[in-house]
Amino acid sequence: MACFVAPATEAVITTVVNAVIKHKESKRIQTEGTEHAAEAIEAHKSKISFSTKLGWLNKMLWGGSALLAFEHAWHGEVVPYFPFFTAVTNGEVSEMLAEMSSVGVTMALLVTAVWGGMVAVSGIIEKRNDKAEDTVSEGV
């Protein structure tokens, strides 16, 4: 009915959070850059910033929601005019809300869990790379 609304809402929130984090990161790089330029550039080169990682979640949520919205339009559940959801016109608001809170929320949680896994794996790879670099520099 309208299950894509839950991940789309999460996408709005994560987009705003991402914009704030990106702003803070660029400010920090500027400050660090003026104090210890070479070290700061090196550190940012070897690690993926959190805003980039949050960008992965944004793309999954926005992309998935857009394609799901298309599916709902295909089935005639979403229309391009007010009130946009045929469930509202047919008096099935409670069913629509129930679906949003069950299927929709599970969708959002599952996408977030997969993203969490991606972040964890990339963190492990980054740590492994750091260790390998340390071993090389110690050997030299």
């Binding site: 991940p7 992965w56 793309k59 999954m60 949520l61 992309g63 998935g64 599952l110």
Partner: peptide, 10 residues
């Protein structure tokens, strides 16, 4: 990411 996001949702 778009296709994976949609796949997880479906």
């Amino acid at each position: 990411l778009m296709f994976w996001g949609a796949s997880i949702m479906w």
